[in-house]
């Protein structure tokens, strides 16, 4: 396979921006809405997701010559389900708080379209290294997207960013932003409870998508405008040249 220079970098970056699974392809929306109440839960979900994606991509890529075209989908589903079960047991053993917070959504990574989609579309056609890079890019892109959503929801909904409730190995502390509590006394509280509720999840996701659409539209319109201007300029120049030529010839006549 001939490969252009910088393919690995491009392959990694595409999952982050150009083909971001959550914000561009709108895949994996269920956990994105359900597990983004707090930044820690979103980070945990993103990490588990990335681990499953990397493992399944590597195994699918290793087995890509053994699995026949006909039974591809069943084989991939079983591979993914096995890895999800392993990840689930690990979480239950080492991070029980994360396990109880995410609950059934760890199991639901099995039916997450991104994992199956990457296995079908990428890992089944490419070598192990490329699949690994692809999985890393997609996984980190998804995690970053979850973190962005969780940031808005936690800051607006609870007023502060709290660490240490799910990842218990770090000391518990919180950064007050919209709400400040000192020694159990609420000093000020400007948080909007609704953003912790399901409705808030939909609103945050909708607004983020709207901002992305806005930026994209603006870019496209700016480009269209510039192209139009250039065309006009060219037409103007051509007209002027033609006029000058006509002038010349007519001047020559006189």
């Amino acid at each position: 396979m001939s490969r252009e220079k910088g393919y690995t970098k491009k392959n990694f970056l595409k999952g982050l921006i150009a083909e971001n699974p959550l914000f561009v392809s709108i895949l994996g929306t269920c956990p994105a809405l359900a597990t983004t109440k707090s930044i820690e839960a979103a980070l945990g979900m993103g990490l588990l997701f990335t681990v499953v994606l990397i493992c399944s991509n590597i195994l699918v890529s290793l087995l890509r010559k053994l699995i026949s075209e006909e039974i591809r989908t069943p084989a991939y589903i079983v591979i993914i389900a096995t890895f999800v079960t392993m990840v689930k047991m690990m979480t239950n053993a080492f991070l029980p708080e994360l396990y109880s917070t995410l609950g059934v959504f760890i199991s639901l990574i099995v039916v997450n379209c991104i994992v199956l989609g990457r296995a079908e579309a990428y890992a089944s056609k490419n070598n192990v290294f490329d699949s690994l890079i692809d999985a890393l890019g997609m996984g980190i892109g998804y995690t970053v997207a979850l973190l962005i959503m969780a940031f808005f929801r936690e800051v607006l909904g609870s007023g502060m960013i709290t660490f240490g409730t799910i990842f218990t190995f770090i000391p518990k502390f919180s950064i007050p932003i919209l709400k400040c509590v000192k020694d159990g006394v609420v000093i000020y509280d400007y948080s909007i409870q609704m953003f912790q509720n399901p409705a808030g999840a939909f609103i945050v996701f909708g607004l983020i998508l709207a901002v992305i659409a806005f930026v994209k539209n603006r870019k496209a319109e700016l480009k269209a405008y510039q192209e139009k201007q250039e065309k006009l300029k060219k037409a103007e120049a051509a007209r002027l040249a033609a006029a000058a030529k006509a002038n010349e010839t007519s001047g020559g006549d006189k």
Binding site: S25, I26, C113, G117, E120
Partner: peptide, 10 residues
Amino acid sequence: SSCGHSECSF
């Protein structure tokens, strides 16, 4: 569109 773009094998 329910399962993303053309990547869904189904």
